[in-house]
Structures are given as structure tokens and as C-alpha cells.
């Protein structure tokens, strides 16, 4: 067998307690367990993480850029969801 075609896993790392896991890249591995150790070896050589998630890239469901116009449209014209929409007199404090 010349090729491996091992599946691709996306890697997410929590850099310290109190922060979210963040996408850092991907690794190939034969299974999820191996993906975890590969991700540790590759992405945390200097203590960059306290927790790792791996997820098979094929299992990720993503929105489509071609549809982002209509997909995100419902939020686009709702300026009243932002604090800057509201008028506040200059001399009122703590608002």
C-alpha cells in the first residue's frame, strides 16, 4: 500500500482553564485516539494546551460562503440589537 489515506481530524485546543477551545489546525490519524496523541505532539510542544478536542473533518457541518448573504441576512438590518442604536443624553452616567 503506497498511500495511507488516513482520515483527517481537526484539532481544537484550550490554552488554559477559563478559555474556549480554539481551532489550531489538523492531523491525519488512523483513529481518534491516535489523532489525540498526534495533536499533542504537534500542537503542544511548549505547553500550549491543557485540553485537546479532535473531530473527524468529515463530521463537521459548515455553512456555505455562497449562501452567506441570505444565511446571515436576518441579523443584518437589526441595528436596534446594538447599544449604539439608542440615544443617551451626555450627562447621564452608568448607561
Amino acid at each position: 500500500m503506497a498511500k495511507n489515506d488516513w482520515p483527517l481530524f481537526e484539532v481544537f485546543i484550550r490554552s488554559k482553564q477559563g478559555l474556549d477551545h480554539r481551532h489550531v489546525g489538523s492531523v491525519h490519524a488512523i483513529d481518534a485516539e491516535m489523532a489525540l496523541t498526534n495533536a499533542r505532539d504537534l500542537y503542544t510542544r511548549r505547553g500550549e494546551g491543557v485540553s485537546i478536542w479532535v473531530v473527524a473533518s468529515n463530521d463537521i457541518v459548515a455553512s456555505n460562503p455562497e449562501e452567506s448573504g441570505t444565511f446571515f441576512d436576518p441579523a443584518e438590518d437589526k441595528a436596534y440589537r446594538h447599544p449604539t442604536f439608542y440615544e443617551v443624553p451626555d450627562d447621564v452616567e452608568f448607561l
Binding site: 498511500k3 495511507n4 489515506d5 483527517l8 489546525g25 492531523v27 510542544r45
Partner: peptide, 23 residues
């Protein structure tokens, strides 16, 4: 030297997002 291997992997990972296979 281990870091350089890691750099190679980060970059293969990046180029794979363009639809080519690492193999």
C-alpha cells in the same frame, strides 16, 4: 529539528485546505 518537522506538518495541514491530498 523536531520543530522543523512540526513546521512541515502545520504547512501540509494548511495546503490540504486547498483541496490537495497530503499523500
Amino acid at each position: 529539528v523536531q520543530d522543523e518537522a512540526g513546521h512541515g506538518m502545520y504547512l501540509y495541514s494548511a495546503v490540504e485546505t486547498l483541496g490537495v491530498s497530503r499523500d
